[in-house]
Amino acid sequence: MAAARRYTKPICHTGLGLALILLAGCNTQPQRELITGSIPKPGAVSSMTLPELNRATDGAGRAYERNPKDKQAGLNYASLLRSTGRSAQALAVMQQVTIHHPNDREVLSAYGKAQAAAGQLEQALTTIVRAQTPDRPDWRLKSAEGAVLDQLGRANEARQRYREALDLQPNEPSVLSNLGMSYLLAKDLKTAENYMQQAAQQPGADSSVRQNLALAVGLQGRFSEAEAIATRELSPDQAQANLTYLRGMLAQQNAWKQLAAKP
């Protein structure tokens, strides 16, 4: 019997088909142990089979149904829904959670991410800015705001938010990678690669960060190097999934064949 394919967490696509990892729900911060039906620990999702992920999502859904007013149950369920690509359902859950917790920064941040994942960019920007407080700024919100601004085509503002996030959380790999993606969207591939290299070298860097670096390298025609990065420290199934994703992204940009034809 063939081994179950490992789940590769989807990355939020911008209009150009590129990735801004924070909007995908990537979070390198540790979380406490939660009750049955909770979201898996950071890093666990990418190592789960699809049936395992579906079971986790079903469990989180049952916990949410038992108490829709429970903040953590709603956040867990919405996060898992986004991880499986059910953005519209995740948004509906977060709308209900926000009704019960209208001034909670963690809830507003998750609501903004759900709006962005569902394509409601202007609404997401409003929600994320509302969640931020000048006296206690949150680097995650700064980076999330930057990712939305990038998707709205406001690159200079986006990069300013990423740099503000890095002032609050120096060398945070998800922010460095998002900053690199901002330059990738502008086709400044060398600058993009420099930031992504910095991100990948940080202790908290995950597979999403390495996939973005592989994409930047592949777009420059260095395919062997890109494939090595995409498959590093992964099981064979995960490595193959990442290669398929990488080649698909490059083909989407009409770049794989064009760059392969170059000497």
Rank of each mutant, 00 (worst) to 15 (best):
A3I: 14
I11T: 12
C12G: 12
C12F: 15
G15M: 12
G17N: 07
L18G: 02
I21H: 02
A24Q: 09
G25Y: 01
Q31S: 13
E33M: 11
E33H: 10
L34N: 12
T36C: 08
S38K: 00
P42E: 02
A44Q: 15
V45L: 08
S46F: 11
T49S: 13
T49E: 06
E52N: 05
L53C: 07
R55T: 12
A56G: 12
G59N: 05
A60Q: 02
A63H: 00
E65C: 08
E65F: 11
R66Q: 08
P68F: 01
L75H: 04
N76A: 03
N76V: 04
N76M: 02
Y77W: 09
Y77R: 01
A78Q: 09
S79T: 13
S79A: 10
L80M: 11
L80Y: 04
A88W: 06
A90C: 10
A90M: 10
A92G: 04
A92M: 09
Q95Y: 04
V97C: 04
T98A: 14
T98Y: 10
I99W: 12
H100L: 07
P102C: 05
D104S: 02
E106I: 05
V107W: 05
L108G: 01
A116T: 02
G119R: 12
G119Q: 05
E122I: 05
A124C: 07
A124V: 04
A124G: 07
T126G: 08
T127F: 01
V129C: 11
A131D: 08
T133P: 03
P137V: 04
W139Q: 10
W139K: 06
G146W: 07
D150C: 11
G153L: 06
A155M: 11
L166H: 05
D167V: 08
P170M: 11
P170V: 09
N171C: 03
S174V: 15
L176T: 01
L179H: 05
G180L: 00
G180S: 03
Y183G: 01
L185S: 01
T191W: 03
E193F: 00
N194S: 14
M196P: 10
M196R: 05
Q197R: 14
A200G: 03
G204Q: 15
A205G: 03
Q211R: 08
Q211L: 14
L213S: 02
G218L: 03
L219E: 00
G221I: 04
F223S: 02
S224H: 12
A226R: 01
E227Y: 09
T231H: 07
R232Q: 15
S235Y: 06
L243E: 01
Y245S: 04
L246Q: 01
L246E: 01
R247K: 14
R247H: 14
G248M: 04
L250H: 01
Q252K: 12
Q253H: 08
N254Q: 15
W256C: 06
Q258A: 11
A260S: 14
A260H: 09
